[in-house]
Amino acid sequence: MEKNSDKKHPGGVSRRDFIKGMGTGALGTAVLPPLLGQTIATRKGRVPVYDKKTITLTVNGKKASLTVEPNETLLDVLRDRLDLTGAKKVCDRGECGGCTVLLDGAPVYACMYLAIRADGKAVKTVEGLAEGEKLHPVQEAFIEKDGYQCGFCTPGFLMTTSAFLEKNPAPSLDEIKQALSGNLCRCGNYAKIYGAVDTAARKMRGA
């Protein structure tokens, strides 16, 4: 699970709020235009300053090209631009995992991931988990074991679980608990979710 830090600066503006606000806020208007097309120095070397950028994503197996602002999150692009509303906006700041999608097979919080960073990558959302009408074993198991209640956090749990079971096909209960600890279920159905993950693992192993 990619963990993005959201530490508050002493002035009370988080790094992420700052980046999100740059495109449209007064600061952005004042600072950005002279730098557009240039590069600026960062700890990781010089990076280009974009206004808008055209990115190409492979979303659930299909190529999508679209022009995004540098401050748009992957979650907003998926939900608002590509009409993939399976990933949910629950906390919008990397605290709950409700927006978890797979990026080149690894789970990320889409609300904390800028869309421009996903350029050229493969994105899998809950809409891409089933093959046609055939549900993924993880989806089947969550229905069988009643691994959810309201279902709002479920897409995130399903994506985390599917990636986890690829890496660990026969997990122990403690490993399941660890793997899911970045996803919150407010209905509190964790005890049922463990059973669903275990059942999914068995199905995937063909056991």
Binding site: T85, Q139, P155
Partner: peptide
């Protein structure tokens, strides 16, 4: 269940 787990 199918509606929920497929994100539909």
């Amino acid at each position: 269940g199918r509606e929920v787990v497929t994100g539909r």
